[in-house]
């Protein structure tokens, strides 16, 4: 996770305008990357060779002379020739919008036009490199919110008056979830919900839970995106999953439970709502 990203900032062609190249070099360094700046007037051959020799993760090409349509694809071609197709290449400078699709079709991952904040470029490179390396940044894989707290109850009818009448919360819906053999009442509280769970049969996990431990807090559901990737991340980190693949949960969500033996005895659910649901 603490990999230092190495970037080559290169000026292909003859133009001497390196204000942007120097600023982006410094900004990437301040962001924590290692940056090598080639200096002016580099041929595509020199750039590709330097990238391979320096073993960089990414190349930033800066061109303000209008020669980008010839020089950028040539850099890509040479990288391919050298078998260095894993290097992420981005571009910037005075580049008309209409040229961007062409450059992207040649393998340039992103072209940053004038006025792009340097932090955007830094984040883009970081994400591209980490994704390539199968490492995702903690902030992106972290759960985004507590989606809901699941509470096991013996009977919804006898429990709901406390939540609705005494606490004054709003009951949103009651729904049956056949896969878990439960009936669920959703009670909204801020951006999250309380989920009251009543067993529909004695084989329901809720029935087993109540039998073992009595009524009470059953699980905490963490809202995530790309649930299958998150499940894979967990497994890659040695975490035991109850569900190896997401199953349909209440409210149209895709859910998967993490085994409490891996979480210091708290039952966590990963929960991904569809976009429509969230809106």
């Amino acid at each position: 996770m603490n990999k230092t990203i190495r970037v080559l900032i290169a000026k292909p062609g003859l133009d001497g305008h390196d204000r942007g190249a120097l600023v982006i070099s410094q900004a990437l360094r301040d962001y924590g990357m290692e940056v090598i700046y080639t200096g002016l007037r580099q041929t595509p051959e020199q750039i590709a060779a330097a990238a391979v020799q320096e073993d960089v993760d990414a190349i930033g090409l800066s061109c303000l002379s209008g020669a980008h349509n010839e020089l950028f694809p040539e850099v890509m071609r040479l990288l391919q020739e050298k078998g260095a197709t894993d290097i992420i290449v981005v571009g910037g400078g005075v580049i008309p919008w209409e040229d961007i699709p062409f450059l992207e079709s040649k393998g340039i991952q992103k072209v940053f036009t004038p006025g792009t904040p340097t932090i955007e470029t830094a984040k883009f490179i970081e994400k591209a490199v980490l994704t390539r390396d199968g490492m995702k940044k903690a902030a992106e894989v972290a759960p985004e919110r507590i989606d809901h707290i699941g509470i096991a109850v013996e009977s919804l009818d006898s429990t709901l008056p406390f939540y609705v009448n005494v606490l004054g919360l709003t009951l949103e819906a009651i729904e049956e979830v056949p896969s878990q053999k439960v009936k669920v009442a959703f009670i909204k509280i801020g951006e999250t919900r309380l989920e009251l769970l009543e067993a529909l049969s004695s084989e329901s996990p809720i029935a087993q839970f109540i039998e073992k431990r009595g009524q009470g807090v059953h699980h905490v559901a963490l809202g995530v995106t790309n649930i299958q990737e998150r499940i894979d991340d967990m497994k890659a980190n040695g975490i035991k999953m109850i569900h190896d693949a997401a199953v349909p949960g209440a409210g149209g969500a895709a859910v998967a439970f993490i085994h409490p033996s891996s979480t210091h005895k708290v039952l966590f659910e990963l929960c991904e709502k569809t976009k429509k649901e969230e809106a």
Partner: peptide, 18 residues
């Protein structure tokens, strides 16, 4: 501006541009 003819290898892509 850099004293290369248009057929020099360094001139590639730059001829007549700026």
């Amino acid at each position: 501006q850099i004293g290369y003819d248009s057929d020099h290898s360094m001139a590639r892509g730059e001829v007549g541009k700026v």
